[in-house]
Design a protein around this nucleic acid. Structure first.
Lengths: 256, 256
DNA sequence: AGATCCACATGATATGGGTCAAATTTCTGA
DNA sequence: TCAGAAATTTGACCCATATCATGTGGATCT
């Protein structure tokens, strides 16, 4: 028995396990209507009947282990994805061959929209921890958008928000110091956790220091030093990936 | 006669002139079908009949003088715009109160999509020279997208391309040197000029050095020094805003 | 349990581009 | 056409962050 066979079996078992875990008792499928995320995710702004139609096209609960890819740069685009649990990292390989982290995706967030423009993904997407995602075939979503104008509008909005988010990040990288950048990322995660009804002050960073640095245009060393400095100033406490924000006001001020 | 009156008259004459210049002989309106840009702009990928329907909703040829704004940050979103002639700059005011240039728009390009997400423009848009733009009311465009799925798809693609473009810029800012950044911008403008069937090697930079620096996350001084250095290395010739690219290979290599 | 590896932390040093200053050129308005 | 303002260039110096080096603790494999 080869290693790849073992991996395949493990993967298969994992899929079973995760599916069971989220299954609707009577018919073995899981619905957007039942998902914890439905107030934040695509169903947002849809009516019950419409959610049911969206439900039909979504392939739910794809489970993924840490470091497993959802798609790679250059692969043919077919779907966008919603994070159901865990966390996903998007990145490209820049012209000069280095990785560039372009985003971190938390539950309820949609990713993969970069693939629409050229009909292939420009980013790769990888699970930063055990995660599950819903797959939304884009052709079906387009059709449905014609039938449900609210959905079309909502999706235009999502893409627009991605644009403005990237532009804010541009501004951050081009005008702000290392401390401001790190504080901004911490506040962003804090706010997104709050939206998820999780603690805004105590959470686990799903990404490595290297990913943080890459995303913020800094080196690992700088990220590490900034976190140490923040801890010394009692702005927060870090222990490995666990963070506790102690002085939200000051951090918010840094993040501005 | 006051200055503002003279300006008003000049402006009026300018409007007349611009309108006349692009007027359809029989009914005093200008159509997408006749526009030089129609192979690059929104009508791309539409059939003749469909272009006529798009035509009906577009307000064409809004003329603008240098430094006139099309919209400001925070204003209610209503339309996206296409550049017909001239060039437009998008920028936001960052949290810390400084200007952040987020894009330069050349003829055939669409801008204003940042407003969709929050129903207000997050950027301001200003003419960098005498320009004209077509206004596309977004509600009408959405309706039309339902009737013409090709248009819906095309618009999704446009937005996705804006996302990937911003992400490439992120990578540029976070990983590349001043020389690489400037070379990348020059090659970008060169390529876009080529697409417009203009010279790829000799053109006028519509933006100031300050705008270039701001866009690329550099100071004016650095931009100026890089251009001088490039000239010393015979990669190009700059005379004020006129540029002639002399060594495309080397510049392309820097831009990678 | 020991060996290996990897993420993270921290110190020492180097440097690209920022900052400040000043000269020069170009634009603008009367 | 001229004066003042604005944009650009260039030089000198400095600093935030990169780079290089080394150490430490925790995880993984055998």
């Amino acid at each position: 028995m080869t290693i790849s066979m073992i991996v395949a079996i493990m993967r298969h078992n994992k899929i079973r396990e995760m599916s069971m875990d989220s299954v609707c008792p009577h018919n073995n499928t899981f619905h957007c209507g039942d998902c914890r995320m439905n107030a934040l995710c695509l169903p947002l702004a849809l009516q019950t009947k419409e959610v049911e139609r969206l439900d039909e096209i979504i392939q739910r609960g794809k489970p993924l282990q840490k470091d497993h890819h959802i798609y790679h740069t250059g692969e043919e685009f077919s779907s966008v994805f919603a994070v159901r649990s865990g966390s996903i990292k998007s990145y490209t390989i820049s012209n000069s061959g280095q990785e560039q982290v372009t985003g971190f995706h938390l539950p309820g967030e949609i990713f993969g929209m970069d693939g629409i423009g050229q009909n292939r993904y420009t980013n790769s997407a990888v699970a930063m921890e055990t995660s599950s995602v819903c797959e939304i075939p884009f052709n079906r979503l387009q059709e449905l958008s014609i039938a449900i104008p609210t959905l079309q509008r909502h999706f235009f909005q999502l893409m627009s928000l991605e644009i403005t988010g990237d532009q804010q990040l541009l501004s951050l990288l081009s005008k702000n110091t290392a401390e401001e950048r790190v504080a901004t990322l911490l506040m962003s995660i804090s706010n997104r956790n709050f939206r998820l009804k999780l603690s805004a002050t105590r959470f686990r960073l799903p990404m490595s220091r290297a990913d943080i640095g890459n995303y913020l245009g800094l080196t690992v060393e700088t990220v590490s030093r900034v976190l140490s400095r923040f801890q010394k100033q009692a702005l927060l406490k870090v222990d490995k990936k666990e963070v506790e924000l102690l002085n939200l006001d000051k951090l918010r001020e840094l993040a501005n």
